[in-house]
Amino acid sequence: MRYAFYFDQSRCMSCNTCSVACKDWHGVNPGAVRWRKVDSHETEGGFFNLSMSCNHCETPACLYVCTAGAIYKRDDGIVAVDRAICQKIEDCKIECPYDTPQFANNKQEPETIAGSFTRHPMQKCDFCVDRIDNNEPPICVASCPAYALDYGDYAELQDKYPDAVPLTKDDFPYAYKRDAEDNTGPSMLIKKRKGLKIT
């Protein structure tokens, strides 16, 4: 089992319903931290929407650099963080090709987690384990008015969406930090939007 997201770029209307529903469900206060981000990228050949959260990589760069041992991978592929033991070293943020790990400030996260090492430990998409363990889709998938998001086992998603391609830096350079390597095996499949003619 390898949980993954599917994203239909030809359907996404960058409405941010997924990102707001995610903040609301997970109680992330207003502020810069948002576990799922939606952007419309302007590149040669048109404008391309991307809704992306943690890609729950096969070989997560964040996990391997976390000297506090706060990041771990579940049997079902979900990459999770134990916020209580995070030491806010932030190497995870540096190493992640997608800039996924995030850290709040006092305003956005006024209440400190009881017993945690640091006041604002790393946070990111947890694949809505509280929901999928209950056979409910992640909140972002369930929220999408354009039916542009799906989730499931990576191989099964490939079968279900034969037009989809894996997330790679070649196809989706705007998903990556500029100097990032593309070697973590993201669990993300995308149906690409076709190019746009501008006249």
Partner: peptide, 14 residues
């Protein structure tokens, strides 16, 4: 703030 992450590990069970 309703922060689900406060004790994530314990929530990994059903």
């Amino acid at each position: 703030s309703f922060d689900l992450l406060s004790n994530l590990k314990s929530k990994l069970s059903i």
